[in-house]
Nucleic acid binder design. Structure first.
Lengths: 191, 191
DNA sequence: ACCGGCATGTAACGGGTTACATGATTTT
DNA sequence: AAAATCATGTAACCCGTTACATGCCGGT
């Protein structure tokens, strides 16, 4: 899903400026499952404008820099609906922390501790955003997605609380590479 | 975390060829939280070789193409340990499906259904891999990470089972944009 | 006085994804 | 006979991230 489609989605919820679109992905309702930065948004809006999928109205503000408020056109709406029918790319998860914890035995215990504390804290922060009751009735799709995020973060926090003891120093686990010597052994399970 | 570090991590578990490293990330123990393709692995191994962080032994096989088995050097081991001490990038989650379901009201009910079924199925597949009891004792770090993945996937499946009814057609939800008209309304909660 | 938030953009750089190229062997 | 697996690589391209550039306002 490219930056253009993401912008269309943001505008699907109502007119917005580039700056506001970023907030939607930074702290707003999209933040748990997609991200875009300024560097992608502004060019994307420019392209969408050229393609006639959005229009833009300059809005002068008092005490604030001018704002370009974009909104969907008919073509943009159609393009977005079409994008929603394309095959979704599989979910992508990238976690440096898990990668590091995978090698916990190689790490100083303080490091492991710091890593886990920070990790839990990050989940707590994300949860606190989602746990705030919405200020208004939100449609089912949004409610589902929001609840999904909450469920995942809760599960993560619970798991960390219940299993971090696995990583706390167990007095020098004897350094042992693993039971598998070759990569094949690690994958094959039916001899 | 770049492809080079990821390769070092894979080799940390034992010597492997490029092809085998990919499997580690495709179906192996890293697959839940990091991914790399051939296009990144082979160049990365080449660079690591040039930097003296890995060495390589050509292994002729019977009935198979030749294989280049790479293994860490002292320098490579040190480099990897150093990488484990760097600040981890925040977790990244990218889900087209959730983005689409966010707009469930705009989608034909069959589409929503298909999307959710496929989504659940994907989680079930991931879970089945992790639920297989390991063929040997695995060290605490790996156990923790593996369990983490399991917990998350379980939570996802449970949530879907319990809440998919939210998305099933509720006889024509009256088309209503939302209660928020401007993007600001969506974000501000303290007037 | 300075920092953080609002606001919009550009340019370069880097890196990963995709596609291409090749080829033997095993499975269906 | 075709498809999948094993196996290694290269090259181009796209696209996103990062850094840079600019400027005003409000709060500390």
């Amino acid at each position: 899903m490219d930056a253009k489609t993401l912008c269309l989605g943001a505008l699907r919820m109502g007119p917005a400026s580039g700056y506001e679109i970023r907030k939607l992905f930074e702290e707003g309702p999209f933040s748990h499952f997609h991200q875009v930065g300024f560097g992608s948004i502004y060019p994307a809006l420019g392209m969408l404008l050229a393609e006639g999928k959005v229009r833009c109205e300059e809005a002068a503000q008092d005490g604030r820099p001018d704002k370009k408020v974009y909104h969907l056109t008919e073509a943009g709406l159609r393009a977005f609906d079409a994008a929603l029918m394309k095959r979704p790319a599989p979910d992508l998860i990238r976690s440096d922390v898990l990668f590091m914890l995978f090698f916990a035995e190689r790490l100083p215990p303080e490091r492991v501790d710091a890593l886990i504390n920070a990790y839990a804290e990050a989940f707590r922060r994300s949860l606190s955003v989602l746990d705030m009751p919405p200020d208004c009735v939100i449609p089912p799709g949004r409610r589902f997605v929001r609840g999904f995020g909450r469920a995942i973060y809760r599960a993560a926090l619970d798991y960390i609380a219940d299993h971090r003891h696995l990583l706390e120093r167990t007095e020098e686990t004897p350094e042992r590479e693993s039971c598998a010597q070759s990569p094949n052994d690690r994958l094959e399970r039916t001899p």
